[in-house]
Design a protein around this nucleic acid. Sequence first.
DNA 1: TTGACAGCGCATATGC
DNA 2: GCATATGCGC
DNA 3: GTCAA
Length: 542
Amino acid sequence: MPESVIFLDYLFILVPKLVSKSAIVKRQLYEKQGAKCFYNLSSIGKGKDQKNSNDKVVIVLQNYKSLRDKINKDFLVKCLDIEYDDRSFSLKSIVLKYPIVKNDWIVESLKAGKVLPLQQFAYDISHVRVDSEISQDYLLELSDRSTKARKISEIKNQDGPATKQIKLEDTDELEKALASLSNREKFKRDNQDNDDEDDEDLLADYMAVSKNVSGPNKEIIFFFNKMANEYKQVGESYKYVNYRKAINTISKLDYPLKTYDEAIKLPNIGKSLALKIEEINKTHKLSKLFFLQNDIKYSTLNKFMKIYSVGPTIAKNWYDRGYRTIEDIEKKVDNLTSNQKLGIKYYNDWNSKIPREEVTQHYEFVKNIALKEVDSKLEIFIMGSYRRGLPECGDIDILITKKNCNDKSELAAILSKLISRLKSKDHNNYIQCSLIHSGINSKSLKFYGGCLINENSKCRRIDFLMVPYEELGASLIYFTGNDIFNRIIRTIAIKKGLNLSNIGLTFKKTGEKCIENSHDEKTIFDYLGIKYRNPEDRNIGY
DNA sequence: TTGACAGCGCATATGC
DNA sequence: GCATATGCGC
DNA sequence: GTCAA
């Protein structure tokens, strides 16, 4: 460790969660100074390696200067991810437990080269406004800004890759400069520059914040989202789907949903959900959620199902046999499959989100090797939430095709070669493990596994998919998602007597292709009679 | 009241 | 040894 | 979970 590490044993909770270039760079800087960084309280308690008992937890208000007027109770509750059920109680107890400081504290400490006392930078909690009308004003303002942000980012996207390239290089330069922080003057200068972030950065931040707090039915959506995730994690997948559909319905409304009668008329909202909406409006709680979260059975199933390759059946089976912890499973279950063993080995890594910036690194890394060492004519895309523009991803989904190549055996050979290159020592054993073994030497068009971009990073889940060129359009749609968006357009296809899959669009009765060569997404949208939506506009149901 | 809610490839278990 | 069933992830 | 048969 260099001598300049001053935040060893400190654990920062950075609020609000900011996703702009400069915010990420700052976070990396804090980490280089020994701090552990998180964005909310719920993530610091979970997992083995996250919090030591001697860690000093400090809540840091990022961009305090520009966000000062926006900070209120709702804001803190949302950012810190405090349970809604008992938020008034929790907020107070948390404030008593952990100091809240302005980001100046970090800046000044870095300048001084030592940790300064917290008191003079403390944020006075008595300033936190609980007045809901002020909060509403803020929400309005935020939604304005986020609309503006979306428009601007669309325009930027149309500029094409050239702009992005430059942006990336900028970040690298900045990072390098900050990394060699032997001279603090440089940081001082950069940091002042960063405080006046350019419009795009600021707007990106607002988007990230507003995502959590906007809309007239934000409270209902908050609870339903929690319910959806609970059900997903205990294997009640149809309940999960329906909650997500209900959220989709509700988030389109521009008025607050007040009564049972009003709610039950809406699509995908029946008796049970209408009752829950009423309960939320009356009590600002949801007893069922509280029950699910605190029930030993559900929380145990949840824990087990987070192991890759453990689903509802096996989780229930283990629960019924009396197992309650991952340690129980490791010790007492003797018929774990090889994938389940990997799932346990990488339990923490694979349950962590991947920052968008890291996915970009993986993309550049893999693309470079694929084009230089395998076949220079390949076309490579990153799918999933990355393509939809989200700031974090669950895994890395890489789609590979080759212009005008529909030969599956050729594609399979390309995949085998790529995987063996990525596994080799020449590339630091980038591929660490495989979840699919067949097809390494032959016909498979997909590979699932774990990969490591550098020694300090976590092992990430990565999927490769080889796609014949004529299936590219359908594959792009399918693997971009999100899942709810896919279900909806599949249903549209079915209503028109068609069948949409990752392979293509076919007539339901005869199975014949509707479109001979569908390497373009737009062709398929057109055929279905729906207007083209950019990947960023396919994030349905939050 | 009851079944559908997408359907496929892979690893593994079970049956013959 | 081969065919089929099950569980899982996508 | 909802919906439709």
